[in-house]
């Protein structure tokens, strides 16, 4: 029996249209006219199963239906169709019971108490999740050690750096030993070192304690580092369910260099890179790691043209999905 079982999941919303000043508002109050209501399907038809101890990336462009799915998995939202079972429970019907078995981290919204020291937030969460005192102490010591929380346990959360706060958030969501951890953009806005630290911790957590992790992210590096399997959704439908390797190899290896030339060049070309787009003196060049390294490419460019500015973009999931549409699945 898989831990998470989703079958033909569907979620439709009705969206009301607004506007028209005070008179428009009055019109909406007194009549149904002018109250344009559209129906939008955030999740059309999604089925998948996640086994215990798996670490799965759940990805797709913005608005693809990722967070709507996560909300249905956690019981925040009731599906409009299909079924969800998590650890033998129906999330929306047994939400409170399920809540004690799951951990949720929203990367952009902390669950910690803003004005209080981190340790106090953890203490409050212990009461919220009814973690026994002994178990709590043991767990806190372990997490403090693994996430290196010691230096800022006594500092108010609002004074923490983004990376420290994320570590605090992770600790907060693990105090009650959840069986499954939902992570929504856990590395967003972090620098490379902080990202790596979080990734190492998650890998360790998954390997040692067998916690199942469902991860949404825009960062291809998160995915290839952490997961073996990925689900790609777009427009509320499952586009891909399979190994990370094939996708990462084929699309994820492609990086992009944005170049501002000092002067207009008729037909710019650099060996090893593909000219993807061009606007005046700005060029978008994509290249593959195994074909040419960034330094070599930059060197080749500067040798040929006068360059004003350069930016290196790592591949993100938007680009991967775009290319899947363009080129099909491997």
């Amino acid at each position: 029996m898989p831990l998470v079982h989703v079958e033909h999941l569907q979620k439709r919303f009705r969206v009301a249209e607004r506007g028209g000043g005070p008179l428009g508002a009055l019109r909406r109050v007194i009549s149904r006219e002018g109250r344009g209501v559209r129906e939008v399907a955030a999740v059309e038809d999604i089925s998948f199963a996640i086994g215990r101890g798996e670490m799965v990336a759940y990805v797709g462009p913005n608005g693809a239906g990722k967070s709507t799915t996560i909300k249905m998995l956690t019981g925040i939202l009731v599906p409009s169709g299909g079924s969800v079972v998590v650890d033998g429970l129906i999330p929306w019907r047994q939400r409170t019971m399920l809540a004690a078995r799951i951990g949720v981290v929203f990367g952009q919204r902390t669950q910690l108490w803003w004005d209080l020291p981190l340790i106090e937030s953890l203490r409050l969460l212990r009461h919220i999740y009814k973690v026994p005192e002994g178990r709590y102490r043991e767990k806190l010591a372990r997490l403090t050690d693994l996430l290196d929380l010691g230096p800022f346990l006594d500092r108010p959360v609002r004074q923490l750096s983004l990376g420290q706060r994320m570590r605090g958030d992770l600790a907060a969501s693990l105090l009650h030993d959840p069986k499954i951890l939902y992570l929504d953009e856990p590395t967003i806005g972090l620098d490379v070192v902080a990202k790596e630290r979080i990734r190492t911790f998650l890998l360790d957590l998954n390997r040692r304690e067998g916690v199942t992790v469902l991860l949404t992210t825009h960062d291809m590096a998160d995915i290839s580092r952490l997961c073996e399997r990925m689900l790609i959704i777009d427009h509320g439908k499952l586009l891909y369910d399979g190994g990370v390797g094939a996708i990462a190899e084929r699309y994820g290896g492609e990086r992009r260099l944005v170049v501002d030339l000092a002067e207009d060049v008729a037909a710019p070309a650099v060996p090893g890179a593909r000219l993807e787009r061009r606007e005046g003196t700005r060029l978008w060049l994509s290249f593959r790691r195994e074909e040419i390294g960034a330094p070599a490419l930059i060197a080749a460019l500067t040798a040929r043209y006068a360059i004003r500015d350069l930016t290196l973009e790592e591949p993100d999931i938007e680009a991967v999905v775009r290319r899947i549409y363009e080129e099909g699945l491997p």
Binding site: T74, G75, T96, M97, A99, R109
Partner: peptide
């Protein structure tokens, strides 16, 4: 602001 989602992920009324 979506803070209510967090409320619903906790095992308390």
């Amino acid at each position: 602001e979506g803070e209510f989602d967090r409320v619903l992920t906790r095992p308390v009324a």
